[in-house]
């Protein structure tokens, strides 16, 4: 069963681009990664799903119900954590969370206490006095206190220290085990890799790739940089799996996907000065997908 179905969704802001003809589905019980560089349209998609902005064309369904017609009904079962959290400053954490809970017609006080304990959050403080990281914790508790069936996270880890990030991820995994579906937007590949089953990669408002994390891991890209003693003959490294080949005299660099042994043999056959094998950063993978699209 699909929890989220996005169907040819387009949102334009006047002349500016938002998202163009975006379609994908998120299945029940999945942790779905939604990655792309800043300005790719991740937040636009999420804000449309939540009814904060209205689509220019296309439609989307959550729990099989149209996001516009059944907005409030759908939102009963959604927990949302925005990338930047801001709450009514002159309220106490406790009062804010109570106010948040009052929208869901169920008793959430026990869950609030549990979550606050896990996240090490002081409920009696004023929101005004909290640090950015602590405000983020309020956001996390606020997003999870009603036991939502769908959790939507928009770049949720900014401002959290590594320890809290760890606890937060564990919390998400528990919620997921209990049956919650999670849509996780990020521009950091490593956190998506850790948590998610599948990822959608977006760039400039378009879906570029939709893959299982396992596939993405198999298609392990490596960035090779080689410095040779003498200039290499042009095209020496032109082989299957090599992309973005740059040859500048004694310096060669390329992105490689495939059997590592083959490329190592190739390198071993020439006299080299130095070699670097790196994990390509996300931007490079994006660029690669992007160029393939063209």
């Amino acid at each position: 069963m699909n929890v989220i179905e996005i169907d040819h969704l387009t949102k334009t802001y006047g002349q500016a681009r938002g998202i163009t003809d975006l379609s994908f589905t998120v299945e029940k019980g999945e942790i779905f990664g939604f990655i792309g560089p800043n300005g790719a349209g991740k937040s636009t998609t999420i804000r449309t799903l939540l009814g904060l902005i209205h689509p220019t064309s296309g439609s989307a369904k959550i729990f099989g119900k149209d996001i516009i017609q059944h907005g409030p009904e759908i939102k009963r079962e959604i927990g949302y954590l925005p990338s930047e959290v801001f709450y009514y400053d002159n309220m106490k954490v406790k009062d804010l969370l109570k106010y948040s809970a009052s929208f869901y017609n169920k008793d959430c006080s026990k869950r609030i206490k549990e979550l606050a304990e896990v996240m090490d959050l002081d409920l009696s403080k004023k929101i005004d006095d909290l640090s950015l990281g602590n405000k983020k914790k309020v956001g996390i508790v606020q997003g999870l206190l009603h036991g939502p069936k769908l959790i939507i996270l928009d770049e949720p880890t900014s401002g959290l220290d590594p320890l809290m990030q760890q606890k937060f991820f564990e919390l998400l995994e528990q919620e997921n085990k209990k049956g919650a579906t999670i849509l996780f937007s990020s521009h950091i590949l490593s956190e998506v890799q850790r948590l998610c089953n599948r990822v959608a990669i977006v760039k400039e408002g378009k879906l570029i790739q939709l893959e299982k994390i396992s596939t993405l891991k198999e298609s392990n890209y490596k960035r090779f940089k080689i410095e040779t003693k003498t200039p290499v003959s042009a095209g020496y490294f032109r082989m299957v799996g090599v992309n973005e080949l740059k040859e500048e005299g004694q310096h060669v660099s390329f992105l490689y996907k495939g059997n590592i042994n083959e490329v190592m043999r190739k390198i071993a056959a020439i006299e080299i000065q130095n070699v670097w094998v790196e994990e390509p950063d996300l931007e490079e993978i994006f660029m690669h997908y992007y160029e393939k699209e063209d």
Partner: peptide, 16 residues
Amino acid sequence: EKTADFLLTKPVTRSQ
């Protein structure tokens, strides 16, 4: 005060 994201993602209609 940037609290719209909080209020408008709650299960309520804009009219409410």
